[in-house]
């Protein structure tokens, strides 16, 4: 049974989220402000954290920053703030995904599932996302039974996106991993390679979705 920690200052929101999550078999603990949230996280060791940004006292982004100093628990930001800059900031501090309020329950649960697929140590050199299989040992990728002919850059790009399948990866994060040491100014090159990669992936159940101003999400 997964344990979820809800950090939100709205009592009604906490109550509803608790009912929603408990109906899905989660064990739920709550905190109504940041400091308490950090303590609960240390004490209960949750499997996933739902974090509001507009907290009184210690703000949500600060809570996330401090949480990331000692924990890599998956964090889903749940906020009314819908500005791209805030989303990018939260994702780059270490949030795993971002859902804006008001949200649909189905979407929230789906995102929670996705971010809990462990990112921890991998035991096989293979990442599988739907029909897509990425072989890190031989630098090969295939969809179904068909091998994809990728350039080294396209492979690196596909690897980053597949490792985060279902989750949004910001443009900066992609550039940092695919072109280490390069400035984040590489957005033009990134578009070009994404474009090529999309053509090679075709219409076979794996797609790269763009979120304007934020980054990309591989859906499989």
């Amino acid at each position: 049974m997964s344990k979820a920690l809800i950090i939100d200052d709205e009592q009604q929101m906490r109550r509803l989220l608790r009912m929603l999550l408990e109906s899905r078999g989660y064990e739920v603990c709550e905190a109504e402000e940041g400091q308490q949230g950090l303590q609960e996280a240390a004490f209960h060791r949750p499997d996933v954290v739902l974090l509001d940004l507009g907290l009184p006292g210690l703000g949500g982004l600060e809570v996330l920053k401090r949480l990331r100093e000692w924990s890599d628990v998956p964090v889903l930001i749940l906020s009314v703030r819908d500005q791209e800059a805030t989303k990018v900031q939260a994702l780059e501090i270490g949030a795993d995904d971002y859902v804006t309020k008001p949200f649909g329950s189905a979407e929230l649960l789906a995102r929670l599932d996705v971010i809990q697929r462990r990112r921890g140590p991998r035991h096989t050199p293979e990442i599988i996302a739907g029909p897509l299989k990425v072989d890190l040992l031989h630098h090969e990728a295939q969809i179904g039974d068909e091998a994809l002919k990728l350039t080294p850059t396209e492979f690196a790009l596909l690897k980053v996106l597949t490792e985060h399948v279902g989750r949004i990866v910001t443009q900066n994060q992609i550039v940092k991993q695919v072109w280490p040491g390069q400035s984040s100014d590489a957005s033009e090159g990134l578009r070009v390679h994404i474009n090529h990669l999309r053509k090679k992936l075709g219409d076979r159940g794996v797609s790269i979705v763009n979120e304007p101003g934020i980054g990309y999400r591989l859906e499989a």
Partner: peptide, 14 residues
């Protein structure tokens, strides 16, 4: 404005 709407939507979803 958005918080109560979010609450209503989540409640309706439930």
């Amino acid at each position: 404005l958005k918080t109560p709407i979010a609450i209503i939507r989540t409640a309706i979803d439930g």
